[in-house]
């Protein structure tokens, strides 16, 4: 459900690079379509079918369950904190990396990619090691009675960590390709740093930013592994939608599980739609930017 895999924008169809016959082509396309249908489409349909197995009434009833509502609320809250945070920090990091020269830049680049390359479970465990009762900061936190893991702040932190690269990864290449001359021009024209950022830098990357935010959001709502480690699974309190789905499923409440799953899948599909729209918009902008030089 988590949409972690990047789908590269297929902006243009390349000219025919190979000389396969039409038959080969048809077979290859057929295989790809069949594969997608079996691997992606069928499971998705199953989710919605299972949710509806006992009819619409039962489906809607399962959304009346206070624990389910709490899980939906928590997921939205976590996304509402993690996504804007990552958007702002990702933007700042990309800006620093793309527009300035400084020591440790490569290290920062590697760090940004780190959450992609380590397992989400480890991302979660890192926080247990940091904030757990026996972690580095555990005793200090306990002294001040601050609860980080097994509470909402821990879930937010784990989500922030796992979804951090989405915005920065989207922005850095674009900002690098755009260079610094527009900003420098703005500065010589007397614009302040803020004015330059909001009037020149930001408008130039707004579509990419939005695209990164959408990917980030999809993952933030769908993240299971890292959140599972720091959640504590307290019903109605620290279960996000993905965790709650597992719980419902384990309680033989299949309709309930698939009802929440289809809501999550629905949100993901919406995100995907918005993303495709942006890809289409964004491809146009990129092509225009390329033409200009």
């Amino acid at each position: 459900m988590a949409m972690s895999d990047r789908v590269l924008p297929l902006a243009h169809t390349p000219e025919r690079a190979t000389t396969e016959t039409a038959a080969t082509k048809a077979v290859l396309i057929g295989i790809a379509v069949l594969f997608l249908a079996a691997i992606l489409f069928l499971p998705l349909v199953t989710v919605f079918m299972e949710a509806l197995r006992k009819g619409w009434g039962t489906l809607f009833e399962s959304f009346g369950d206070p624990d389910t509502l709490a899980a939906i609320r928590l997921t939205l809250l976590v996304a509402a904190i993690a996504v804007p945070f990552n958007a702002v920090v990702g933007l700042a990091a990309s800006w620093a990396i793309a527009k300035f020269e400084f020591r440790g830049k490569n290290l920062l680049l590697t760090l940004i990619d780190l959450p992609f390359s380590i397992s989400p479970v480890i991302s979660g465990l890192v926080y247990v090691l940091l904030f757990g009762a026996h972690g580095w900061l555990g005793p200090w936190l306990q002294h001040y009675n601050i609860q980080i893991i097994f509470a909402v702040p821990g879930i937010v932190l784990a989500t922030v960590l796992v979804t951090f690269p989405f915005v920065a990864r989207e922005l850095i290449p674009l900002m690098q390709s755009q260079g610094t001359s527009e900003e420098e021009t703005a500065l010589t024209l007397g614009a302040s740093g803020w004015h330059t950022f909001f009037r020149v830098t930001l408008p130039n990357v707004k579509w990419a930013l939005l695209y990164g935010v959408l990917l980030c959001n999809a993952r933030a709502m769908g993240e299971f592994g890292a959140v599972s480690v720091v959640s504590g699974h307290i019903r109605g309190l620290t279960n996000t939608m993905p965790l709650h789905i597992e719980i419902l499923y384990n309680e033989y409440n299949f309709v309930g599980a698939f009802a929440v799953a289809s809501l999550l899948a629905g949100l993901a599909l919406l995100t995907l739609l918005a993303k495709s729209f942006l890809e289409w918009r964004f491809a146009g902008e990129l092509a225009a930017a390329a033409r200009r030089h």
């Binding site: 509402a80 904190i81 804007p84 945070f85 702002v88 601050i146 609860q147 909402v152 702040p153 937010v156």
Partner: peptide
């Protein structure tokens, strides 16, 4: 959104107690 997020984080921290 930042302000909202910060407020929410603060509230959830406080909520435990």
């Amino acid at each position: 959104s930042i302000a909202l997020g910060a407020a929410a984080l603060f509230l959830s921290l406080g909520a435990a107690q």
